[in-house]
Computed example of a mutant assay.
Amino acid sequence: MKKTISQALIFVFVTLPIFTFASVDTVSTYSKTMDKEVKSMVITPSNYDEESQYPVVFLLHGYSGNYTSWLENAPETEKLADLYQMILVTPDGNFDSWYWDSPVDPKSQYETYITKELIPFIDDNYATIAKKEGRAITGLSMGGHGALYLAIRNQDIFGVAGSQSGGVDIAPFPENWNMKAYLGTKAESPSNWEDYSVMGQLHLLSQNKLPLIIHCGTNDFFYQVNLKLHEELTYLNIPHTFTSNPGGHTWDYWKESVQYQLLFFHNYFRENPSE
C-alpha cells in the first residue's frame, strides 16, 4: 500500500538556543571636583527595560588599568550582567589613583567622584535601584582596596562590597605603585598611610551592616595582607566571606573570582528587594 505524503514525512522540531548579548555603553561624566571628564563603561542586560529597576555593581580596575580593563581582559563578564540581571559599571581610576580623595593632590579626588558624581549620573540615566540595597562595589588589586575603602566609608551608599586580590593594607608597600604621590611619603606623613588604608577603616564596621566577600590567591603577593584583614575582621566579630585558594595576581584568577562575587551580590539583592 502506498503511503500518503503526510504519512511518509516525519517532522522534527528542534529548539535552537537564542544568543543574546548585553549592551555596552561608553559614557563620559564631568567631574566638577577634579575639573575633568572621566570615562566609564556601563553594561546593561540584553533585555534591559527602562520601566524596570536593576541593581548596580561597580567594578574597579587595578593599578595601570583603566575603564576598559575588565571587558578587555575578562570579556565574559558582560554575560554575567544578563545572567544576574544587573547593571555593571567600570569607572576609570586614572591608572594609579587608589580611589582616594588625595590629601596631597587636589586633582585626584576619586572617592568624591564615584560617590557624589558618578553614582548620581548612573541613577539619573539608567533604570537603577537607587538606594544602597541595590548597589554593590568590588574590584581587583588597587580596585579591591578601593572597593572596600569606599564601601566601608560610605555605608549609606553601598549595601554590599567585595575585593579580589586587593591591596588592603598599604603600610608594607611605601615605595610601590606611586602611592606616595597621593599620600606623601610614609616617613613624612605616617598618619596618611594608616588613615587611607582599608585596615585603618575597620573601626567603622559593625555586625551585619555591610556584607563583605574577600578573595585572594595563596600565591599572590597580597595574600598576607588579605589574611591579616580576615583575621582582624574575625577578631572584631565582623561577618564576612573569605576565600583563599591557589592562584596568583592574574586575570585567570580574577575571571573566576568575579563570577563568585557577582553571585554573592545577586543573592544579597534578592534577599533585600527594592520594595
Rank of each mutant, 00 (worst) to 15 (best):
P190V: 06
K3L: 09
S97G: 14
D123A: 01
G143S: 10
H249K: 02
S102W: 11
F121P: 04
S6M: 11
K3D: 07
D220C: 13
Y268H: 15
W70S: 09
R135K: 02
K186W: 04
L229W: 00
S69V: 01
L150S: 12
T15M: 11
I10F: 01
L210C: 06
V198C: 02
L236I: 03
P55R: 07
Y260P: 00
L80C: 02
I122H: 05
F173Y: 12
L9K: 11
P91K: 01
Q201H: 10
W193P: 04
E232W: 08
E111Y: 15
T218C: 10
N94P: 13
W98P: 05
R135V: 01
I213C: 04
S274I: 14
L229C: 00
P172N: 10
A74D: 08
P211R: 13
K131R: 13
Q85V: 02
D35A: 15
F11H: 15
I213L: 02
E50R: 12
T185K: 08
N73P: 04
W193T: 03
I122C: 07
Y84R: 13
N267I: 00
T241G: 10
N208M: 04
K131Y: 03
P172L: 02
F242M: 12
T250A: 08
S197H: 10
E188H: 00
I119D: 08
G184T: 06
Y67Q: 12
V258R: 01
D124W: 00
R270N: 13
N73A: 07
Y67C: 08
K39N: 15
G200L: 09
T218M: 07
L262F: 09
P55I: 04
N245C: 06
G247N: 08
Y110R: 14
D195I: 05
E37Y: 14
N192A: 07
N245E: 14
D124H: 03
K132V: 01
T185W: 13
L9I: 15
A127P: 01
W98L: 07
K39H: 14
T234C: 05
F221E: 13
V258K: 00
M142P: 04
I213E: 12
G184L: 03
Q155P: 09
L88K: 07
P239Q: 13
W70H: 07
Q224A: 10
D124S: 08
A8V: 06
K180M: 14
P106K: 14
S31I: 09
P120D: 01
S46P: 12
L71H: 03
Q224Y: 14
V89P: 14
E50A: 07
E72G: 13
T33R: 15
D252W: 09
S6C: 03
V160S: 04
T138K: 03
V38S: 07
K2M: 06
H61W: 09
D124F: 00
Q224I: 13
E111V: 08
P174E: 11
T44L: 05
